[in-house]
Amino acid sequence: MNSTAPALQSDDTRMGDLLALLAYGPDGWGDELLAGAWLTIRLAVVTLPFGLALGLLIAIMKASGQRYFRAVGNVYTTVFRGLPELLTLFVIYNMIQIGVNRLVNSFFPDSSFEIGGFAAGVIALAVVFGAFSSEVFLGAIKAIPKGQVEAGRSLGLSATQAFRLITLPQLWRLALPGLGNLWLVLIKDTSLVSVIALNDLLRQTQVAVGVTKEPFFFYLIACMIYLAFTLVSSAGLNRLEARANRGFAAR
């Protein structure tokens, strides 16, 4: 521990010392934390489109008339909503690395290709996000009155056209509140990849704690950064929702 007991210092110098630890540059941890925060944002933002696409696909399967499509969709949702995110991330992360590397090596035996930690993390997060968002999409699909699609079909649209032209444009507005919640969950779930391999915000904080022995201060800073992400996100989501609902009377 420190030779000078922290309690003996006056509060002002103690606070100043702590803030100096956040300096941007080689002496402080500000730049490391920012780099971690940036990776956290990138993880979440890159995962989002994949997770949404997967969720929409699963939702369409669950809403389809084909029995086995429905069953596959339901099993997927049951499994990945029932497993702890930590376990899913760990299993998928490792499986993907082993699987993809084995696949590539079987075609190109002497390549030294390896899937990066970032890509594996994105896939793992997207699989979980897809399971939850498919439920949101399914709810939204079911919330659109059947008569609309039937009217479209009677006008001669094919099932695919009816979905693309009638259901899909309305999906956004109906699914937005649920998807917004999932986005906040996703931001928080990115912290779990710190356990696996990536130098995200939480991992960088751990490194800083390891050197400085100031866990309370640094984890509090990390929490505040996450909090800033979620607060900014929910403000943005409110505006998006207001925009999506602009044609509808306020409740």
């Binding site: 309690a7 906040l184 928080k188 779930d189 990115t190 912290s191 779990l192 710190s194 356990v195 939480l202 904080t205 751990q206 704690v209 022995k213 100031e214 866990p215 309370f216 984890y219 509090l220 990390a222 929490c223 996450y226 909090l227 979620t230 607060l231």
Partner: peptide, 26 residues
């Protein structure tokens, strides 16, 4: 409510567990 719903559970756990370790004397 905002703090505990807006931050990851893992970060909260680290904050309490390792943070408490720092104050072990008190």
């Amino acid at each position: 409510i905002t703090f505990f719903r807006g931050t990851p559970l893992l970060a909260q756990l680290f904050l309490v567990y390792y943070g408490a370790g720092q104050f072990n004397e008190s």
